[in-house]
Design a binder for these strands. Structure first.
Lengths: 215, 215
DNA sequence: ACCTGAACACCGTTCAAGT
DNA sequence: ACCTGAACACCGTTCAAGT
């Protein structure tokens, strides 16, 4: 609606306007949806909103996407497909650190993405395949295949969960109400909560756990 | 609709039917919503469905609940309010284990609850306050207040995430596609995945990490 | 005080038409 | 092949009535 670049030039060259060519494309649709996700959150990415942003009828989208679930899957892929999860480092610890810092950075760059990935019927298996590097690193650390997978899931849950909390503002839930259960002077950590530090703490804790596990 | 016990007796005693008393109550509404959540998942708990289950107009609910968010908050509270998160054990490790095993057990008893708690604007701070016992245990383990909180969030993300994956069937997402990225003989852990064992592994890993951290 | 019924502004999606 | 428009079966919620 408010995008000035969307209603631009129509029929190019000499073609006599072949049925109002809009060059609507799956890529353009996915990008419009991602823009909506970034600006207004996951509940704003609606077939009708996406269509409106592209100045098109809702039903026009279905020539390119199949369903809303398909579109959301495309959005998730698009947001992650330029990620580089490979640290190219022989040390398994720095490899795992790099991997999940990268995942978190992307989730913070696209508010609403973490939520989208948690609503998992939307995330295609392909999305996190690059994380194979993490599995390799954990195996290299000495974990058997099954435990490497378990640790991988633990790290994914943690990373997405934290990013999600951060994105929707200082935790509305899960926090034991400091204002009522605890004297005021102890509530300081809630007021200036350092998400970055908390994330790094969690990563270190898990990696320390891996160390102990393989020892 | 299909509940035979809902359309039962009307006006009792000698009262001349004072405007069709339905004894509709917040508790009954919350319980009907929880039943819907358990049977048909979170997307089935709809104002209209809840009203239908109670044989009442959707708008009748608003005399007792305020909004759908308020209702969902009530459902979360109801599902958790009989939980006993206190192990009454001096050992901090068994206290933390008990706490999160209990949380997970409740989430598995109420499929859809984990998802509900993750959509956190719905979970009231009060819901997880009993977890104060966990914080106390982690402080007792030697963690400073801030790190105890961080570990608490890590454990909550992990527990809810795992329960959520388990509830919606063998992970549709987040799994690095074994069938295409890896030879078949290595895919066994995917086929018979032991959620209980994976959860226990995660707990142990985190507690080992705490041990290392305070040492 | 509590419940109903109609209505409003939304959803995703189907289907028959248009070009 | 691609897009439109009307329609269907849903949402949560407001508002004026009924008792």
């Amino acid at each position: 609606v408010s995008d000035p670049a969307s209603g631009g030039e129509r029929e190019r060259g000499s073609e006599p306007s072949p049925a109002r060519a809009r060059d609507l494309t799956r890529t353009r649709i996915v990008e419009a949806a991602l823009a909506l996700l970034d600006r207004n959150g996951v509940e704003a990415v609606t077939m009708r909103n996406v269509a409106g942003a592209l100045d098109v009828t809702p039903m026009a989208l279905y020539n390119h996407v199949g369903s809303k679930a398909d579109l959301l899957r495309g959005v998730a892929v698009r947001a992650l497909d330029h990620a580089d999860f490979d640290a190219h480092d022989p040390d398994w610890r720095t490899q795992v650190l790099h991997c999940f810092r990268e995942l978190r950075a992307i989730c913070l760059r696209h508010p609403g993405l973490a939520r989208l990935l948690e609503v998992a019927d939307v995330a295609p298996p392909a999305v996190l395949v690059p994380m194979d590097t993490t599995l390799a690193a954990l195996r290299q650390a000495g974990l058997p295949e099954r435990d490497a997978l378990r640790t991988y899931f633990l790290l994914v849950s943690f990373t997405l969960g934290q990013a999600d909390y951060q994105n929707r503002g200082p935790f509305r839930a899960l926090a034991p109400r400091p204002e009522t259960t605890r004297p005021v002077e102890e509530t300081t950590p809630y007021n200036h909560w350092d998400f970055d530090a908390a994330f790094e703490f969690g990563l270190r804790l898990v990696l320390d756990g891996v160390d102990t596990m393989v020892k």
